[in-house]
Simulated scan of single mutants.
Amino acid sequence: MMAKIILAEDDNSLRGFLVNALKKAGHIVKDYDDGETALEALQEEVFDLLLTDIVMPGLDGIELARKAAELDPAMKIVFITGFAAVALSNGSSTPAGAKVLSKPFHLRELVDEVERVMAA
């Protein structure tokens, strides 16, 4: 099932790998290197899935996901992070149903997780 994905990841090399893997799997991907520009894109068009790093300068992934969920409650959300335990602790309110993929992960795991989330 093809998905239209918005990706926010401040690590340029990782972002490139993720985009390539998702496009090879047949998805449409728009990628941004920070939360602010990703949010602007979310305000202008509809996406099936937000894939975002949690720890980014400026607007972080959790805040981006909150705003994305307000704009489109039907959008699926997957966080990618090396700091899942830290970022999602102390009762931070992440959108309901958001998934977390902890770094390091294989690109195949990412593609599989996207397909699982979209099928749900």
Rank of each mutant, 00 (worst) to 15 (best):
M2C: 11
A3I: 04
I6R: 01
I6S: 02
D11G: 10
N12E: 13
L14F: 01
R15Q: 15
F17T: 11
L18H: 01
L18M: 12
L18R: 06
N20Q: 15
K23W: 03
K23H: 01
K23D: 08
K24E: 14
K24I: 02
G26D: 03
K30V: 03
D31F: 15
D31M: 08
D33T: 07
D33E: 12
D33L: 08
D34E: 12
G35E: 09
A38F: 05
L39Y: 13
E40K: 07
Q43H: 05
Q43N: 11
E45V: 06
E45D: 08
F47S: 00
F47C: 05
L49D: 04
L49N: 06
L50G: 03
L51G: 09
T52H: 11
D53N: 15
D53K: 03
I54Y: 01
V55E: 09
V55F: 05
M56N: 04
M56P: 07
M56S: 07
G58T: 05
G58Q: 06
L59V: 09
D60W: 11
D60N: 15
I62Q: 02
E63V: 11
L64H: 10
L64G: 11
L64I: 09
K67G: 05
A68R: 03
A68T: 07
A69G: 03
A69P: 01
E70M: 13
D72F: 15
D72Q: 13
I77H: 05
I77S: 01
F79I: 08
F79Q: 08
G82Y: 01
A85E: 13
V86M: 14
V86A: 15
S89F: 03
S89W: 02
S89P: 00
S89N: 12
S89C: 00
N90I: 00
G91E: 15
S92G: 06
S93N: 09
S93D: 10
T94A: 05
P95L: 03
A96R: 14
A96V: 11
A96W: 00
A96L: 13
A96P: 15
V100H: 06
V100P: 00
S102A: 12
H106L: 15
L107S: 08
R108V: 02
E109A: 13
L110D: 08
V114H: 09
V114Y: 00
E115R: 10
R116Y: 10
V117C: 04
